[in-house]
């Protein structure tokens, strides 16, 4: 145990993360009325990804990126979800399932498109097999671009959503690099 404590004392402090104030402001204007608070549950749906966006999305939960510390967690049930997080293009074959997932969520709900595919179809733009990005099927509140976006970028994007929905945070939480 002493080894663990010593290791922790030796670990470096990590940079605190703060959301881009401009993004927070525009989100607050758009969805601020929803007042969902600072603890948001996410239902992820891949509507036709290459699976790399899922890898990075999963990486947001690891010891380095630690999404959960911001009050964000993933839930398997759309009934418990505040955020529908879509990755991948909206494939024609997934359109119905995507709409059903959205319909199963309690209101108010937010829709986030993660990755270039979900933003506008990405490299697959124009393919006859797809309805475009998530916006081709649903109204989207926030887009996080990148192919795939890094976990850091996903966390910052979602953090903006937390800031826009809740009372301002007290000081940013101190973090340490995991060892």
């Amino acid at each position: 145990m002493w080894k663990t404590v010593a290791k922790h004392l030796l670990s470096r402090a990590a940079e605190a993360r703060t959301a881009d104030p401009a993004v927070v402001q525009s989100l607050r204007e758009k969805v601020g009325a929803s007042k969902l608070g600072r603890s948001l549950a996410i239902r992820h749906v891949s509507a036709g990804s290459c699976n790399a966006c899922e890898l990075e999305l999963r990486a947001t939960q690891n010891l380095v990126h630690d999404l959960t510390q911001y009050g964000l967690s993933f839930t398997p049930s759309p009934r418990h979800a505040d955020i529908l997080l879509v990755t991948g293009v909206s494939g024609k074959n997934m359109r119905e399932a995507l709409l059903q997932a959205r319909a199963a969520m309690p209101e108010p709900a937010l829709v986030v498109a993660v990755g270039d595919c979900a933003v506008d179809g990405g490299v697959f733009k124009g393919s006859p097999a797809i309805c475009g990005g998530a916006g081709g099927v649903l109204p989207v509140d926030l887009m996080i671009a990148g192919c795939p976006p890094s976990p850091e970028r996903i966390v910052l994007g979602l953090l903006a959503l937390v800031e826009a929905n809740g009372a301002p945070a007290r000081a940013a939480m101190p973090r340490r690099e995991p060892r």
Binding site: G48, V89, V123, G126, S127, P128
Partner: peptide, 11 residues
Amino acid sequence: LGYTHKGTLGM
């Protein structure tokens, strides 16, 4: 399967 069909070969 087939849900992630994106028409890759055609692209």
